[in-house]
Design a protein around this nucleic acid. Structure first.
Length: 157
DNA sequence: GCCAACGTTGGC
DNA sequence: GCCAACGTTGGC
């Protein structure tokens, strides 16, 4: 049987909040706290076995630092019901939760990062939405050809 | 600290 | 349903 087709994604995290090192230590993590419908819908369209680039945002310099795999999906984000959490959503009902998340597993940290600057010099915003000016999406798909190109480049380093 | 680019909210 | 005001993300 031919290997299953996988898709590629990019997921942002501020390293002060959660970094690739944290994921390496924990091996797996629930990608919680997503409170944006577009990002949530991308998580819903992920498949088990898909791979995601781990992106460090709001840091100097920002860029792709590692790789992880999607190992579970459609998991209810527990913080939407936690009144003490900044992710609490009083409009979300237990019998109809509004926010869900995926679980990811550490694959590797790259020896050197690919910075946003590198990416924006290589790709247009049509090829890679990440480099679109003012892009605030925290989760987005990555075109497969580009993903494979990035992986090739990262393996060389 | 500034600002671009949106998403969200609420008045009407 | 429109739209102005406001809030958030995140690069620089």
């Amino acid at each position: 049987m031919a290997p299953k087709e996988i898709n590629y994604w990019l997921m942002k995290s501020e390293p002060d909040a959660y970094s690739i090192k944290d994921l390496e230590k924990e091996e797996e993590t629930l990608w919680d706290g997503i409170r944006n419908y577009q990002a949530r819908n991308f998580m819903r369209s992920m498949e088990i076995g898909d791979q995601a680039f781990f992106y460090h945002s709001n840091t100097k310099p920002p860029g792709i630092v590692g790789l992880m795999e999607i190992i579970e999906k459609n998991l209810i984000d527990p913080f939407q019901f936690d009144e003490s959490s900044k992710y609490f959503d009083k409009k979300s009902k237990r019998d109809n939760p509004r926010w869900d998340c995926v679980k990811t597993k550490y694959i590797c940290e790259f020896k050197s990062m690919i910075t946003l600057k590198d990416l924006s010099e290589t790709y247009t915003s049509e090829e890679l939405t990440l480099v679109r000016k003012g892009n605030r999406l925290s989760i987005m798909p990555i075109n497969k050809d580009i993903a494979l190109e990035l992986l090739k480049k990262l393996k060389k380093n």
